[in-house]
């Protein structure tokens, strides 16, 4: 019996090594090769640049604070949020008092900053995402921020509102996912708009 077990274990080790080469080396490297040849932009992390330097990834949200920027959702990734080395959620439950206090503070702060009624602050502005890196906000939250951003940047409000409109992405094929606005892409477009001047 003991010898039998040992013999099975030895066979197991040999099979493990061979299958490891197949599934743990050949397979990922083959996928990597095809990815780098055909889909390099996505495979390398969908980087976005501004004036020749990488400023981030369009898939990874960033922290934007202050009146001049469209804000992202609250984030639980790292103590200051949006840290890709500490992705994750708050994991606070539906009856959790800490989370309830956070939600109330966020509602009051967003209402005051954007000059909207507290009841009209949308849910995504009050909650942290599962990844802590959510690059999107709802179209409603982006629209409610546009007057404040336009004022802070000295841009006509309708230009900023039009920019938000250009960045709204509906459901994929009309039914997959939820409508959204990519905050980094929107803020990048905002910067470029500012550089060109407010226009007519």
């Amino acid at each position: 019996m003991g010898l039998q077990v040992l013999r099975q274990a030895a066979a197991g080790l040999r099979v493990l090594v061979v299958l490891s080469l197949l599934t743990g080396a050949l397979y990922p490297v083959a996928v990597w090769g095809i990815a780098q040849l055909a889909f390099e932009h996505g495979a390398d992390g969908s980087r976005v640049g501004d004036r020749g330097r990488t400023v981030g990834s369009s898939l990874i949200g960033q922290d934007f604070s202050g009146p001049r920027w469209f804000h992202s959702r609250p984030s639980a990734a790292g103590p200051r949020g949006y840290d890709p080395l500490a992705s994750g959620a708050s994991d606070l439950g539906p009856e959790n008092g800490t989370l309830l206090r956070q939600v109330r503070q966020r509602r009051a702060a967003a209402a005051a900053e954007d000059g909207v009624a507290p009841g009209r602050v949308p849910p995504d502005a009050l909650t942290a995402s599962g990844s802590g890196l959510d690059p999107h906000v709802s179209p409603g939250y982006a629209r409610r921020q546009s007057a404040r951003v336009a004022r802070a940047r000295g841009l006509p409000e309708r230009r900023v509102a039009a920019l938000v409109g250009d960045h709204v992405r509906g459901r994929l094929l009309g039914f997959l996912g939820a409508p959204r606005v990519n905050v980094l892409e929107l803020n990048l477009a905002l910067e470029r708009l500012g550089r060109r001047g407010p226009g007519p």
Partner: peptide, 22 residues
């Protein structure tokens, strides 16, 4: 629940692009 009612949706811990249903 207390927090989802205060928020107006069960969106804590969910991605905006996936939403509640997906």
């Amino acid at each position: 629940g207390t927090v989802p009612q205060a928020v107006g949706a069960s969106l804590e811990g969910k991605e905006q692009q996936f939403g509640v249903w997906n």
